[in-house]
């Protein structure tokens, strides 16, 4: 008799238990992350030329901007206009540079290139779509009027900025 009572009681326990709720909370906040996916390398296709273009033997720096929410940030990329490290140079260096949209996580981001604003050596992109955009940077330096760059290490800085708007 006692055994039956115990079994019956045990069977009843699960049905009398209280249900508990597990809460999952999340928060999406605006933020911008700048990723330097590839650091560039200057190629030296001619004695007077240093270039990051792949056709010139260089490697284009690639910078990825990740934004969590659309329309909160501007991306600004400034190509170099001087060397941060170089041998002593006695002649003028002429700089050209362009920033273009490479890979995109959303097809609509391809329109960034057409809408970009360029001034001096800076290109400005309005990040109107949430996701990731890869920007490729070309930088070309030519020395004097056909003069050969002196031997040594050359470095220049690309500035990538993410500005809240």
């Amino acid at each position: 008799m006692v055994k039956y009572t115990l079994i019956l009681t045990a069977l009843c326990i699960p049905f009398t238990g209280n249900a508990e709720e597990a809460l999952i909370e999340g928060n999406v906040q605006s933020k911008c992350i700048i990723n330097t996916d590839i650091n560039g390398v200057y190629g030296n296709p001619a004695p007077d030329k240093l270039s990051t273009k792949s056709v010139d033997g260089g490697v284009e720096p690639t910078i990825r901007f990740d934004v969590a929410i659309a329309n909160y940030y501007l991306a600004r990329v400034t190509t170099p206009s001087s060397f941060s490290t170089s041998p002593s140079l006695s002649d003028v260096v002429n700089w050209t540079g362009t920033t273009t949209v490479g890979e995109v996580s959303d097809a609509g981001m391809s329109a960034y290139d057409a809408a970009k604003v360029t001034y001096d050596t800076t290109s400005e992109f309005d990040l109107t779509i949430a996701g990731s955009t890869w920007f490729k940077v070309d930088s070309v330096a030519t020395y004097g009027f056909g003069r050969a760059f002196p031997g040594g290490t050359y470095r220049a800085i690309v500035q990538a900025e993410c500005i809240a708007q």
């Binding site: 490290t85 500035q159 990538a160 900025e161 993410c162």
Partner: peptide, 16 residues
């Protein structure tokens, strides 16, 4: 600034 450093991208993030 030393020549061993390979970084050529400087990143800047601004909040309002």
């Amino acid at each position: 600034t030393d020549s061993s450093a390979r970084a050529i991208v400087s990143s800047k993030i601004c909040s309002r």
